[in-house]
């Protein structure tokens, strides 16, 4: 919305030692990361990793139990921040008795001065929906479509999407994703998408936040994170991991028969006769999801930049 969005140093989300509870369980513990503005960030992690809790805290629906989270430079839920953040909850809540048109008109009434009816209607049309259809009579996928249109109509600077595509069919998912990315690119919206569907993230997200067990495991530009890793394959018949890997950080190593496949963070050239490739995003994520104990990797752009005085919880 503002020209400031285009400054590379602007921060959309920034957490230091963030903790939050969900149903008396510590869902987030000591989360520290930063998401620069203007990125499309994938938020990945196993079930119960704290993805939804993180998004709910950022949306101002839940108070953190410790640490700090700054959203667009302010506190979540602050009157100056609230109008600039849109959030789509996992269950896509909408009023079932409202028609699509009434739902959008509610969006306009609740976001005075911000609402963009044309954008919202364009996304509704993308899903082939009638404006006069009652929300309660729509299928799950169609409701998702309305909910996405509602979130985008607010013209947010930061869009938080919790499992947005889970009940869309592949065709609709493709169409909605493309429409979403086009809108996001046009307005330089920062998007954070929590998702299980790793394939839908490939090619759309340029930033990555992997959390497991309430902690950040990976954070940074997708490109940088991928190039920091190598997928190593080769014949190996001994027990344990090859000695020549000792100099590197092994994220995960598996042996199938005589074939060894390892995801490693090389600290220099890898010796030995191995087939070395750059992992795909999906391979990178799967490797880290399988090995929750692997050391975290936080790219420099994902380090919080809050003044140190504010780091105290």
């Amino acid at each position: 919305m503002t020209e400031l969005t285009f400054l590379p140093d602007r921060t959309a989300l920034e957490a230091v030692g963030l903790r939050a509870r969900y149903r008396r369980r510590e869902a987030l513990r000591e989360c520290t990361f930063r998401v620069p503005a203007g990125r499309v960030c994938a938020l990945v992690g196993p079930n119960g990793a704290g993805k939804s809790t993180l998004l709910a805290v950022a949306a101002g629906l839940r108070r953190p139990s410790g640490g700090r989270l700054r959203v667009l430079g302010g506190t979540p839920g602050d009157p100056a921040v609230r109008p600039r953040v849109a959030y789509l909850a996992q269950d896509k809540p909408l009023y079932p008795h409202f028609t699509v048109a009434e739902t959008l008109s509610m969006g306009r009434a609740l976001n005075p001065g911000r609402w963009d009816q044309a954008v919202a209607e364009r996304l509704v049309r993308e899903g082939n929906l009638s404006l006069n259809a009652r929300v309660g009579s729509l299928s799950g996928g169609q409701r998702t479509c309305v909910a996405l249109a509602f979130a985008f109509g607010k013209r947010p600077e930061l869009l938080l999407l919790d499992e947005p595509m889970s009940d869309l069919d592949p065709l609709m998912r493709h169409g909605m994703m493309a429409a979403l990315m086009a809108e996001a690119a046009e307005n330089a919206t920062t998007v954070v998408i929590a998702s299980h569907i790793l394939s839908e993230l490939e090619g759309t997200c340029d930033y990555l936040l992997l959390i497991a067990d309430g902690r950040v495991r990976l954070a940074g530009e997708v490109e940088d994170l991928i190039s920091a890793h190598r997928l190593v394959m080769g014949r190996y018949e001994d027990v344990g991991t090859p000695r020549e890997f000792a100099a590197h950080t092994i994220v995960e190593a598996r042996t199938t028969g005589r074939q060894l496949t390892a995801l490693i963070r090389p600290e220099g050239p890898i010796s030995g006769t191995w087939e070395i490739t750059e992992p795909s995003l999906e391979e990178l994520l799967l490797g880290h999801l399988r090995a929750p104990g692997a050391p975290a990797l936080i790219a420099p752009s994902a380090e919080p930049r809050m003044p140190a005085s504010r780091w105290a919880a």
Binding site: P79, R82, Y87, P93
Partner: peptide, 9 residues
């Protein structure tokens, strides 16, 4: 969650 994440507190 819908109502509270609009521009009103």
């Amino acid at each position: 969650k819908l109502a509270w994440t609009q521009s009103v507190s």
